[in-house]
């Protein structure tokens, strides 16, 4: 049973930011201790509340704010997603399938149909870690404790790259696709607005900020925007799970290529499930940029994919992730 809390319907984004600002003034040292939290779809929040990982005193419902569930597109300005756009809507939108294919695929491969109906894209980017120590009764490092239990413990699902004091992976699928399309978050606080690239938004937790992202106690995401991809841009999202559906990614890849005739003008390869943040496979991107389609199909994709994984540091139970990551990168590139 969840601890008791107040529930307030916000009628505007500004009101929601004001309520966050007032309620979280005391700036708790752990993000888990924020007394006021937003609720969107509730699919992550209620699970961490039921497990007593967070126990807010007040929930501010933003589903009552008008127009936050809009999808708009204009060639000049690109795609505008309200934070309440559901994963189901992302999955089915024709324009997104057409121009931002990897994003529609990432939404489609997330969670289950019921969860996608409820889950919002804003909430998706703010999910709490799925590390089982974090979700269980362990006061691990990310929760403010001294030790990361996963490092020497059960680490089958944990990071192989960019390992810091916490080796969890970010659970979001759409995050990788948003980064591949250079998406920007529009963030509102009680007194200021700021824009942040999705790629910068996710952070490797530090002792000063034990969190997976940069959102402050009093801020909300009001929109996500993606520039219009240049002509001849193709993308794909591939994801491996323990089973075919309704699982978090073991490893995933969002790959996007913009072609200039037969040449790769730009490549974005963003991996999920391998690091505490979405991981840009820079080495592989560099390896293939400027090269031709026939190069890609005669060994280059394979070489680039393997180079991308050469810095991996597998732990006791997750050595499978490096070859899996290489295989997914290769498969993704050959599909473009």
């Amino acid at each position: 049973m969840m601890k008791p809390f107040d529930h307030v319907d916000a009628n505007s984004a500004a009101r929601a930011a004001a309520l966050l600002g007032e309620g979280n003034q005391a700036a708790p040292s752990r993000p888990e201790d924020r007394p006021v939290r937003l609720i969107a779809g509730g699919t992550d929040l209620l699970t961490v509340m039921k497990d007593d990982i967070v126990s807010p005193q007040t929930l501010v419902n933003i589903k009552t704010v008008p127009d936050l569930d809009r999808i708009q597109f204009d060639v000049a300005t690109g795609l505008h997603l309200g934070p309440l756009v559901s994963l189901t809507d992302l999955e089915h939108d024709t324009l997104i399938n057409d121009r931002y294919t990897a994003l529609a695929q990432a939404a489609h491969l997330s969670a289950s149909p019921q969860l996608r109906n409820m889950a919002t894209i804003g909430g998706n980017l703010l999910q709490q870690s799925r590390c089982w120590y974090y979700r269980g009764p362990f006061h691990c490092w990310l929760k403010g404790g001294d030790e990361c239990y996963a490092r020497e413990g059960e680490n089958k699902y944990h990071a192989i790259l960019d390992q810091g004091q916490c080796i969890t992976v970010n659970p979001s699928d759409p995050a990788q696709a948003l980064i591949a399309f250079d998406a920007t978050l529009h963030i509102l606080g009680p007194s200021a607005q700021r824009d942040l690239k999705v790629e910068q938004f996710f952070i490797n937790p530090t002792p000063q900020r034990r969190a997976l992202n940069q959102l402050d106690d009093d801020e909300l995401i009001t929109a996500i925007t993606l520039p219009t991809p240049p002509p001849d841009t193709h993308s794909v999202y591939l994801k491996m799970m323990d089973r075919q559906t309704w699982g978090f990614a073991l490893v995933s890849v969002a790959a996007r290529i913009t072609w200039d005739g037969d040449r790769i003008a730009r490549a974005d390869i963003i991996m999920g499930g391998v690091a505490p943040t979405p991981y840009r496979a820079t080495i592989a991107e560099q390896e293939i940029t400027g090269r031709s389609r026939s190069d890609l199909h005669s060994g280059l994709a394979d070489r680039a994919a393997h180079k991308a994984m050469r810095d991996a540091h597998p732990l006791e139970h997750n050595a499978y992730k490096a070859p899996l990551g290489a295989a997914l990168i290769k498969r993704a590139l050959l599909a473009l």
Binding site: H7, I39, G41, G42, T43, L46, T47, K50, N61, K63, T88, A111, S112, P113, Q114, L115, N117, M118
Partner: peptide, 27 residues
């Protein structure tokens, strides 16, 4: 499961299937 992991609590809200265990009644 009461955590969105099994589907036994599925109902239709509006015209979409949802998990009622992760939905607040007040909403």
């Amino acid at each position: 499961c009461d955590l969105g992991q099994c589907g036994a609590c599925t109902v239709i809200k509006g015209n979409r299937a949802i998990y009622s265990c992760l939905t607040l009644a007040v909403e």
